[in-house]
């Protein structure tokens, strides 16, 4: 009789204890909204800086630099020098289909149809395939990574191998990437590819090795017409801010809310 009672008691104790634990966990979730307060306090202590080429780059929120691109469609002549130079500078495989930047030629025909062509990314030069009497409008669109601040490719990476750097550049960690290709699928602009030799994701780095040494990205440097601009969005005197002031600029696919930092002047609605 006594043993049976003990047994009952222990079951009661167990139930009380487990309810207390579960209740505790549930209650602690109510503290979640206050998390930011705790983090704000600790943020001061973790306001760490990294030494990058003798320049200190602090955390994103108060970073001095926030890099972006500005492309002028009205000035682009589709010579493909940018795409070629990018491949040279960044050891991108020479065969077609692997590009960090490329040129597309859009041709709107009189019958309302659209033809988009980009033979070898425009590296060998572009030729107009549509007879001139059928052309309503034609223009070149240079494409590259949009360096989104709310980047879809970063969100899907399962290992944390791709990220938005403190100065707003979307980069790939070559040593950490497992080459699963999720980011290639996720990028709405088609700006990533799997490197055939390294078997990792590769993309435009906004020439991170150049911009931190005070140089322009290669594509900006070699563009013969100055169709490409690059600069710091937080510096009101930078080339890019000047470009944005003087032109009416748009980003690609704004409805996706990717926070794109590649601004186009003269962007037509047809461009995707």
């Amino acid at each position: 009789m006594k043993t049976e009672k003990d047994k009952n008691n222990s079951r009661r104790e167990f139930l009380i204890a487990s309810t207390a634990i579960t209740g505790g966990i549930v209650l602690s979730t109510f503290l979640n909204p206050f998390k930011s307060i705790a983090e704000a306090k600790s943020a001061d202590s973790t306001k760490d800086t990294i030494k990058l080429n003798d320049k200190n780059v602090s955390l994103a929120k108060d970073a001095e630099k926030w890099w972006g691109f500005g492309f002028d469609i009205e000035k682009c002549i589709g010579c493909g020098t940018c795409a070629k130079a990018c491949k040279e500078e960044n050891n991108v495989p020479k065969e077609p289909f692997f590009f960090r930047t490329w040129i597309e030629q859009y041709t709107e025909k009189n019958d309302g149809t659209l033809k988009v062509q980009s033979p070898n990314g425009g590296i060998d030069g572009q030729t107009q395939a549509v007879p001139s009497e059928d052309i309503f409008k034609s223009y070149f669109v240079p494409k590259t990574c949009n360096h989104c601040s709310k980047s879809p490719c970063v969100q899907v990476c399962p290992v944390g191998a791709t990220f938005v750097s403190p100065d707003g550049v979307v980069l790939v960690d070559e040593k950490y990437c497992i080459g699963c290709g999720y980011c290639v699928q996720a990028c709405p602009y088609g700006c990533r590819y799997i490197h055939p030799e390294k078997e990792i994701a590769d993309k435009c780095t906004l020439c991170y090795h150049r911009i931190n040494k005070g140089l322009q990205p290669t594509c900006v440097e070699v563009c013969p017409t100055g169709a490409r601009t690059h600069g710091n969005l937080r510096d009101k005197k930078s080339d890019l801010v000047k470009f944005l002031k003087e032109h009416n600029c748009h980003v690609l696919k704004p409805h996706l809310n990717t926070g794109s930092k590649l601004f186009y002047n003269g962007l037509s609605e047809e461009v995707r």
Binding site: L52, A85, E88, L171, E174
Partner: peptide, 21 residues
């Protein structure tokens, strides 16, 4: 985790590439 869910050293790796142009 130094700056976020990635290796902060990867910034340095990206920066160390050879400047050709």
């Amino acid at each position: 985790y130094k700056f976020g869910h990635y290796r902060a050293d990867a910034l340095k790796d990206n920066e160390d590439h050879q400047v050709k142009y």
